[in-house]
Simulated assay, not measured.
Amino acid sequence: MKPLEAIADDIGDVLGEQDPRESEFGEIAERLRGDLLRLVAIANAAGDGGGDGDAEVCRLLQRARTLRSEALPDDSRQALGQLRRMAGLVNDLLERLVETNIVKEVA
């Protein structure tokens, strides 16, 4: 199972100061999709994936399900935009899971 620190690294690969190379877009997209799957599974196991969980976690989970299913656009600027949205969502979901004490803070 992928450590949460590795998920934070994936976020940094996209939202860091330097954009990833276009040749890495596909690989990064797959890693981010996997990160979303992992965080969704954690939230579901904690009981926050249903209607009586944290409302913000539920909203983020719905966005994750939608964004995960979208194909990476062929246009490089659009693809980078989608990677940024995915990385931002992974970040938001991870932060919310920390705030709600579902996971421990990631260094």
Rank of each mutant, 00 (worst) to 15 (best):
L83K: 08
D92L: 11
E70P: 00
A87Y: 01
E56G: 03
V98L: 01
K104G: 01
E5F: 08
G12Q: 12
R33M: 10
F25S: 10
Q78P: 00
Q18Y: 10
D35C: 10
R68Y: 04
S69V: 07
A107Q: 09
V40S: 04
S69H: 08
Q78N: 12
L37A: 13
D19V: 02
A46P: 11
V90Q: 05
G81R: 14
D75M: 08
N91V: 00
C58D: 14
Q82E: 07
P3E: 13
D75K: 14
P3Y: 08
E24M: 10
A71T: 09
E17T: 07
G49M: 12
G12P: 03
R21D: 01
Q82I: 02
A64K: 04
E30C: 02
V103Q: 01
E5D: 11
L97S: 02
S23E: 13
E99Y: 06
V98M: 09
A64I: 04
D74Q: 15
R84I: 05
V103G: 00
A43S: 14
Q78M: 12
E70D: 00
I28V: 10
T66A: 01
R96H: 06
E22T: 13
R77C: 03
D48Q: 14
D13Q: 15
E56L: 12
R65C: 00
E5R: 15
C58Q: 15
V106T: 07
D13F: 14
L83G: 01
V98E: 14
R21M: 00
E17D: 12
L97H: 03
R84K: 15
L4P: 03
L4F: 13
L15S: 10
D9E: 13
F25H: 11
E95S: 04
A41D: 14
D9S: 09
E95L: 02
G81I: 05
S23G: 01
E99N: 09
T66N: 01
D13W: 15
P20N: 09
G50E: 15
L15C: 12
N44H: 10
A43W: 05
V103Y: 06
L4V: 05
R38I: 09
E70R: 08
L72P: 03
